[in-house]
Amino acid sequence: MQVDRRLGWIAGAALFAGCAIAAPWLDGFTMSLLTLVFLFAWFGQASNLAMGFTGQLSLGHALFAGLGGYAVVIITTRYGLSPWFGLLIGMPIAAAAGAAIGWLAFRFGVRDVYFALLAIAVAEMMRVIFSNWNFVGGTGGIFLPALSPTNEPLRTLRGGALFYYAAALFLATAGTALLAWLRGARIGYLWRALRDDEAAARALGVRAPLHKILACAISAAMTALGGALYAHLNGVIFPDSMMGMALSIQIIIGPILGGLGTVFGPLVGALVVVPLGEISGTLGQSLGISGMNSIGYGLALILLIGLLPGGLWPAIVAGVQSLWRRR
């Protein structure tokens, strides 16, 4: 426990500070890769909150990313308003959607696998609806207009590679700090109690519906914020890429591999999963055989969960601890 905390803070602080300082010297590829790493660390923290802290296996998080992304893109491109205003609308909408799913699940006793499938069903249904809704661009999606030369990133929330890098780094740092704070806060204890044994927690006065729905809502709002940045980073938003099952899977792989319920797991998970996806992709291309990336990525996932039962972060902590003792 102690080593876990200390190691985490030192490594985390060093990583975030190092990445901030190193920014001017990074080449384009590394910077865009790290941008994705940090963005998915943020997504990972959002799903860690619902899944790792509260025990709700959500396979529909792309829905919230999509809602956030669409809200900001529609507000800016259709109405010419500030993207901040878009966030102000998109995050509450996503939170309401998350709360609604959480409430339905609680009200009707939908849990475990069934909860995961409920979330998939809602997300897929929304994806199909968005694909057929002209106002949001249908399957053709919405392309963002070219940036003006006088663009101010903090007003448009768009910019060059450095802006997205900084924004994603900020989100990853803030997300990790937020989860660290929540873990030791009252609500964090209540969430973990509910996750470990809901009936026992309720008998101790923990208001299960309130806290579970709250977790769903916060997690959804966080994911929506990440989705807005992701849409801006891509310069375009499609229902398939922003609301599809593939993104939902991508969002939750990081925290599960990194170590669910831990503060630094999602960060470590993103550091491994995102480059793994990129490397297997380039490797597949250079070998000239399509499908190799998918095979390599799949095998790596199976290997990692097979070898590290509790996830990467707990394994790292255990390794450092044994080194410590040997000294």
Binding site: M1, Y189, L190, R192, A193, R195, D196, D197, A199, A200, A201, L204, V206, G261
Partner: peptide, 14 residues
């Protein structure tokens, strides 16, 4: 029914 991921003290805090 102890909560396995919480310490003894943390269990009693809930």
């Amino acid at each position: 029914r102890p909560m396995r991921d919480l310490s003894v003290l943390e269990n009693a805090m809930i």
